[in-house]
């Protein structure tokens, strides 16, 4: 009832691989985590633009959509749909609309957490 076992396997394998590649970039190059996230999100937009994102997502499910590549893929999809509907204006409106769920969730939960919690000292 809750999906095929193979879906979980592919999500795990592909998602893990995506993270492993990022880890290699962090450890072996001088790329900072912030730059890697930018690279990943832009890569997602690119994959969406050339039409590779959807097939990949069909195959690996959350293994592709949960990493930041998915954020970029969503943006590309939103832009494509918005351009089809409203023309050039869609280039501006589509991206953030498609990514609005995650962004708004991060902002709202971030605010709530900031209200409720306190930052703690780090102990290595």
């Amino acid at each position: 009832m809750l999906g095929a076992p193979l879906d979980y396997l592919f999500a795990f394998l592909v998602g893990g691989l995506v993270c492993l590649l990022a880890q290699l970039l962090i450890d072996l190059t001088k790329l900072t985590p912030a730059r890697i996230l930018v690279v990943y999100v832009v890569l997602g937009v690119f994959l969406g633009a050339v039409g590779l994102f959807e097939p990949l997502a069909d195959f690996a499910g959350c293994g592709i959509t949960v990493p930041l590549i998915g954020f970029g893929g969503n943006v590309a999809r939103g832009v494509r749909e918005a351009v089809s509907e409203t023309g050039l204006l869609g280039a501006l409106t589509g991206g953030l609309s498609a990514a609005s769920g995650g962004t708004a969730a991060a902002l709202c939960f971030g605010y709530l957490v900031a209200l409720v919690c306190h930052s703690k000292p780090k102990h290595p």
Binding site: L2, Q23, G61
Partner: peptide, 27 residues
Amino acid sequence: GSPVFKNCFFAYLFGGGICALGQLLLS
């Protein structure tokens, strides 16, 4: 430098695990 092998192992494990959790939520 960093313990690359160990870092990659845990990156794969946690990253894959989070994606699998996502898959479970999706289902």
